[in-house]
């Protein structure tokens, strides 16, 4: 099946992880122009290395939720005018609620909810002007079933899901839609470290008996950006191999 896309410019927020670079590679093949955000020189170098040979077919831009001004600068200084936004940003903070520091709680929730909402706000305003746009938020199965210590992570995911959900609801009449994907265990980043430590236990929990490959998730992301998927609006989709479907 050939996928069609109404737009060209794809902004990938949180652009240096495995899923982001896999998504960017497929996007380039589909004649999209991805702009991947980085928040350190190290992550910028990683993007450059992973996408070597594709120079001129993608862009990079600085974005760090710890620096709220960077959201404004992303659109003002870099001139990013996205038709599509894929949001892969997530902050790490695991703590029991009762033992968390108040300052850390404030900064974590501010960065991962309020600053993210600023990103959605500015991106969607550009999309409304164009009367087209697609917003994809990559959430997590932990939003629905957090482990102990993941309360803040789950809280930020659930709140962010609500922001994306409502944006798709509110702006659909102007051609701007949204979709939320809740992946389960991904063989990448923290999930890879976790899985390498205790692969059999994790695999036993998942009905398909395997973790999600980043390439597989990237392909799903590209499909959910395509014109064929646009009736999926303001909805959450699990991509977890059946992890949360049955009795635990």
């Amino acid at each position: 099946m050939k996928l069609n896309f109404f737009g060209k410019n794809l902004l990938i927020a949180g652009g240096s992880n495995d899923i982001a670079v896999c998504t960017a590679k497929i996007a380039v093949k589909e004649n999209l122009f991805p702009t991947l955000t980085f928040r350190s020189q190290k992550s910028a170098s990683r993007i450059e290395k992973e996408l070597s040979g594709m120079e001129g077919k993608y862009g990079v831009a600085f974005l760090d939720f710890a620096e709220p001004d960077s959201v404004d600068r992303l659109f003002r200084d870099y001139g990013v005018e996205p038709d599509y936004l894929v949001d892969l940003v997530h902050g790490d903070y695991e703590s029991l609620t009762a033992s968390a520091g108040q300052d850390k709680i404030n900064s974590y929730l501010n960065q991962n909810i309020a600053v993210r909402t600023g990103l959605v706000r500015l991106a969607s305003r550009i999309m409304v002007k164009k009367r087209k746009g697609r917003l994809l938020y990559i959430s997590s199965a932990a939003a629905e079933r957090p482990a102990m210590g993941q309360g803040f992570y789950a809280a930020s995911k659930l709140a962010s899901e609500a922001v994306y959900n409502n944006t798709g609801l509110e702006l659909a009449s102007r051609g701007v839609t949204s979709l939320i994907i809740r992946p389960g265990y991904i063989y990448s980043g923290r999930g890879k470290k976790f899985a390498d430590k205790d692969f059999d236990t994790i695999r036993e929990k998942i009905p398909v008996k395997r973790l999600i490959d980043p390439q597989e998730l990237a392909e799903a992301i590209i499909f959910f950006l395509s014109d064929s998927s646009l009736s999926f609006n303001a909805v959450k989709i699990r991509m977890d191999g059946g992890l949360l479907a049955g009795k635990q």
Binding site: R125, K129, E170, L171
Partner: peptide, 14 residues
């Protein structure tokens, strides 16, 4: 409606 005002503000600003 609200969505009309949003678009109105954006277009007027531009």
């Amino acid at each position: 409606e609200s969505i009309d005002l949003l678009e109105l503000g954006l277009v007027i600003g531009e």
